[in-house]
Simulated scan of single mutants.
Amino acid sequence: MVRKYERLSGRQSWSEEDMAKAVAAVVCGKMGYKLAARTYHIPRSTLQRRASKVRYQQHEEPKPLMGNYRRVFTDTQEKDLVGYIKSMEKYFMGVTKRDIRELAYQYAEDHNLNHPFDSNTRMAGEDWVRNFLKRNPELLYKTETHGELEPVNFDQFYHFMCQLA
């Protein structure tokens, strides 16, 4: 996976605010697809797809990424993972990247999500955890006042957290 990617194309150069305004105009019946696409400078096909999702109330899906990569978790699911990790740190002192990878795999399996994680090792990839920590920098700050970290029985914690939810 590319470690530091700089985008070269001009695709998806429109803003989410313009797309939301255009979808609202189309759904309310104030404008047609063509006029709304021209007015807000967005692709008509994307506008049609987004408007149909709003009209037919499809469930929340992860925002697609450009290229071959796709998101595994929605924003709310990622917030749940962050909450689990913070409570792990609170109750069991230390969390390693390996623990986060295992937690992500178990979370995806428990929620029947389509994921590219390795089923042999039952963990998410190293690139996934690196990008997850970039998206959630509050998990990177660790206090070292506890000294040596104790090993964590991850399965016991995960089932403990499922019982609390």
Rank of each mutant, 00 (worst) to 15 (best):
Gln48Cys: 07
Arg130Ile: 03
Val2Glu: 04
Ile85Thr: 11
His111Gly: 13
Lys134Gln: 05
Gly67Ala: 08
Asp99Asn: 06
Glu16Ala: 13
Leu133Trp: 03
Gly83Ile: 10
Arg101Trp: 00
Met1Asn: 00
Tyr158Gln: 10
Arg122Asp: 09
Thr121Met: 02
Cys162Ala: 14
Leu113His: 11
Ser52Cys: 07
Tyr5Trp: 04
Tyr40Trp: 04
Asn68Tyr: 00
Arg55Asp: 13
Lys53Tyr: 05
Tyr141Ile: 10
Tyr91Ser: 12
His59Arg: 11
Glu148Phe: 15
Gln77Met: 09
Lys134Tyr: 01
Ala104Lys: 01
Gly147Phe: 08
Arg7Lys: 06
Glu61Lys: 05
His111Cys: 12
Met19Cys: 05
Asp118Met: 03
Leu133Cys: 04
Gln48Pro: 00
Tyr5Met: 00
Glu148Gly: 15
Gly67Val: 00
Lys86Glu: 12
Val72Met: 01
Val23Gly: 10
Glu148Cys: 15
Leu47Asn: 01
Pro43Phe: 03
Glu144Ile: 13
Tyr84Leu: 10
Phe132Lys: 01
Arg11Lys: 06
Val82Cys: 12
Asp80Cys: 14
Gly83Asn: 13
Phe132Arg: 02
Ser9Gly: 14
Ala124Val: 04
Leu113Ser: 13
Thr143Met: 08
Glu17Gln: 13
Tyr5Glu: 10
Lys34Cys: 14
Glu78Val: 05
Thr76Ile: 13
Tyr56Gly: 11
Ala37Cys: 06
Tyr105Phe: 04
Cys162Val: 07
Phe154Thr: 09
Pro137Ser: 04
Glu61Gln: 03
Ala25Glu: 15
Glu6Ala: 07
Phe160Gly: 15
Pro64Ser: 07
Val129Ala: 00
Trp14Tyr: 14
Lys134Pro: 09
Met93Arg: 12
Met123Glu: 10
Gly94His: 07
Met66Val: 15
Gln156Gly: 08
Phe160Asn: 15
Tyr105Lys: 02
Gly94Cys: 12
Gly147Gln: 08
Val27Met: 08
Ala25Met: 09
Asp127Trp: 01
Ser13Ile: 14
Arg11Ser: 12
Met123Lys: 01
Asn136Asp: 05
Asp127Ala: 01
Lys53Thr: 12
Asn114Ala: 07
Thr74Val: 11
Lys97Met: 05
Met123Tyr: 03
Tyr84Gln: 12
Met1Arg: 00
Phe154Pro: 11
Val72Gly: 00
Lys142Ala: 14
Leu81Asn: 04
Arg101Met: 04
Ser45Glu: 14
Gly94Lys: 05
Arg122Ala: 11
Trp14Pro: 13
Ala22Phe: 02
Ile42Leu: 10
Asp110Ile: 09
Val26Arg: 06
Ser52Pro: 08
Thr76Ser: 15
Lys53Cys: 08
Thr96Pro: 11
Glu60Asn: 15
Lys34Leu: 15
Asn68Glu: 11
Arg122Asn: 08
Ala51Met: 08
Leu133Ser: 08
Pro62Arg: 07
Asn131Glu: 09
Met123Cys: 09
Thr76Phe: 09
Gly32Phe: 04
Arg7Asp: 12
Met1Thr: 00
Asp99Trp: 01
Asn112Ser: 14
Arg3Gln: 05
Ile100Val: 07
Glu102Val: 09
Phe160Cys: 13
Arg71Ala: 09
Met93Glu: 14
Lys30Pro: 13
